[in-house]
Design a protein around this nucleic acid. Structure first.
Length: 604
RNA sequence: GGUCUCGUAGCUCAGCUGGAUAGAGCAGCAGCCUUCUAAGCUGCGGGUCGCAGGUUCGAGUCCUGCCGGGAUCACCA
């Protein structure tokens, strides 16, 4: 951990080293690194960085004010980057020289990969996300999943990881048989083409239809005197669906053919949604390919004696020594369950990549599942089970409560994006902006803004937390939103264009001894934080940290822009400096937004 | 009931390994476009950080208990 901290901030390292020196010089004792606390100076005080002296008192054996004062003097005389200091209570506020910040600025401003790290690690990080079922279209919950998975992948890449994005499609099981059966019975041969409907929507409709007819059957059976539980099990439709699943498992040609066809429709539909959302995968796994491997693992477990068979033939894993229950792995009839398939998928993925980390972006409702998955793999003698990370994100709630397909409160992914698009269009038109855009340009902008709003809204919240999705708020384009940041970028690009038109040339200049206004300095200091923010976001798998950072940056820039003249500044060095600062800020905004999967416009 | 998790302004959220007077946005009110894009900026009001103890020089942050919400404990996935 201290190592991580070390690489984070150059100036912090310098201060830490000097403080340790100071401890020896002034008090004859080595200050342990873990009690050194350096933080940003609060804006209401003078200074850039602050050392908290309370923990140091046991070494100085003096009161806080005196200790801080002695240390402050030491810093000023021994570290050229520290120009002055002040002491308030137990806090030593240090002011760092302008040239330190300017030096950072000169080095970084033209870097196209500012903040990023080279890919140095060979062993990949495999990240699974999306993981749809093929019986229903993608909805709001999937959107959070997809955006998180995508963004975390990008953040890890930017931190030097060799990332492989994978999807696991749950393409087999009773659910898809239900859709198939309903299509056979009531579909009249309809296809996505003949119905002019996205394939995932069409198949989803038949899933809903099955449920409706099934409920009718149950109602009829209970009306004729059957008990509800029995009716639920014996309704002819369900029995038929189960038979179909059996046929599927035995490889019945007709069933397999229909299955392949209908899943194909769904994939075509998913592709459209994925493309629009801007997510993609390096590899797609299908459970129909992995469940057999899962079964093989269960056999292995039986041979090794870590699993056991009950009298009815079902296979279990005893986890009571781990404080959990027994877990079923194969049904009495020999068919596999979710866990069986996931064991197989994990093994396959390990074989494919030998990853140093296996990340699963899956909702927190499956925390138990992943705990068990890890345990069973360990019992099966797979040491890499330790490398499984469950990126457990919180549910998305609506103002009325949880999304429930049965109650029609599901927010469909495609519909949501359509709505956002229309809002972007209306908002832009209402503001009367850029009527000179061609239809193609306008379409591109609306697409960018609508997705920017949606993605930013979803990603700015800590992934682990349950989040509230209020449609009315999510389409807001003011304040802490994606479009606000996109707007800031467009403003900067406008400045850059005009700056060039006016013949300014700021890029090759090295800036020294410039007297900085507070807003200029605070902007540079914020830019200085970007690399460490990126590192923290990767450590925490948290796009929210990037989102909050880039919002702060945009806000800071807007204040700077409001307060300080740029193009009309008469001193050319200052003018160039401000243009360079603006461009650097714009580039950082663009890079950070890219990690969230959000594009930024040149004009808006 | 067991396990896990969350509780910060009217609403949605920040608050890094414990540090200074807890911050944004939205909503409300009041200002700022003859000057670089007003999707912006400035100001005002709004809080016993669920409650009670504890550890500490110092707790929104760590520990314990309680209250309240959520998830999970399937021969569903």
């Amino acid at each position: 951990m201290p190592l991580q901290k070390k690489t984070r901030k150059m100036i912090n390292d310098l201060l830490t080293l000097t403080l340790i020196e100071a401890g020896k010089a002034l008090y004859g004792e080595k200050i342990p690194e873990n009690i050194i606390q350096i933080q940003k100076t609060r804006p209401e005080f003078e200074g850039d960085l602050t050392i908290v002296v309370f923990p140091l008192l046991r070494i100085s054996k003096k009161n806080p004010a005196q200790t801080a004062d002695e240390l402050g003097k030491y810093f000023v005389t021994n570290l050229e980057n520290v120009v002055t200091y002040n002491v308030i209570k137990g806090f030593l506020n240090l002011t760092i020289s302008n040239n330190y910040w300017l030096n950072f600025f000169n080095i970084s401003k033209n870097q196209t990969d500012f903040g990023k790290k080279e890919i140095t690690r060979e062993a990949p990080v495999v990240i699974e996300y999306s993981s749809p079922n093929t019986n229903k279209p993608l909805h709001l919950g999937h959107i959070r999943n997809n955006l998180l998975g995508w963004s975390v992948s990008e953040i890890l890449k930017a931190n030097g990881e060799n990332v492989k994005k994978v999807n696991l499609v749950n393409d087999r099981g009773i659910h898809i048989c239900k859709s198939m059966l309903a299509w056979q019975k009531w579909g009249n041969g309809v296809t996505p083409a003949s119905a002019s409907k996205k394939g995932d929507k069409l198949v989803g409709d038949f899933y809903v239809l099955f449920d409706k007819k099934y409920k009718e059957e149950i109602a009829a059976l209970t009306a004729s005197g059957m008990e509800k539980e029995k009716a639920e099990k014996e309704a002819p439709l369900l029995v038929e669906a189960k038979q179909m699943l059996k046929k599927w498992e035995t490889g019945d040609k007709e069933v397999r053919k229909l299955w392949a066809e209908m899943n194909g429709w769904v994939y075509d539909g998913f592709d459209v949604t994925y493309k629009r959302l801007g997510v993609e995968f390096d590899k797609i796994y299908y459970e129909s390919d992995t469940y057999l491997l899962g079964k093989a693992l269960v056999e292995e477990g039986l041979e090794k004696g870590v699993l056991f068979k009950k009298e009815d033939g079902s296979v279990w894993c005893d986890l009571s020594s781990d404080g959990l229950d027994e877990k079923l792995l194969l049904r009495a009839d020999g068919t596999s369950v979710y866990m069986t398939q996931d064991l197989g998928t994990a093994q396959l993925r390990y074989n494919d990549y030998h990853p140093r980390e296996l990340i699963y972006v899956v909702g927190n409702e499956q925390n138990y599942h992943f705990e068990v998955l890890r345990l069973i793999l360990k019992k099966l003698g797979r040491p890499w089970a330790e490398n499984i990370v469950h990126l457990s994100y919180g549910m998305v709630e609506l103002p009325h409560g949880k999304m429930k397909s049965r109650e029609g409160t599901v927010v469909d992914a495609d519909d949501l994006m359509d709505e956002m698009y229309n809002t972007a269009k209306q908002t832009t038109e209402a503001l009367g902006k850029y009527n000179d855009f061609t239809p193609v340009e306008a379409d591109k902008l609306y697409h960018m803004l609508s997705l920017g709003a949606l993605k930013y809204f979803m990603l700015k919240v800590d992934p682990r937390k349950t989040m509230m999705f209020n449609p009315a708020e999510s389409i807001d384009f003011n304040g802490n939103t994606g479009p606000f940041i996109q707007y800031t970028h467009a403003r900067i690009r406008s400045l850059v264009r005009k700056g060039k038109e006016l013949g300014n040339n700021w890029q090759s200049v090295q800036y020294k001894d410039i007297e900085m206004a507070p807003k200029e300095k605070s902007l540079i200091k914020l830019l200085y934080d970007y690399p460490s923010t990126l590192e923290q976001a990767a450590q925490n798998f948290s796009p929210a940290m990037i989102a909050n950072y880039v919002y702060d940056l945009a806000k800071e820039f807007n204040q700077f822009y409001q307060e300080i003249t740029i193009l009309k500044e008469e001193d050319s060095e200052k003018r160039n400096f401000r243009l360079a600062l603006s461009e650097f800020t714009g580039n950082t905004i663009r890079a950070a937004m890219k990690l969230l999967g959000i594009e930024v416009p040149e004009r808006m």
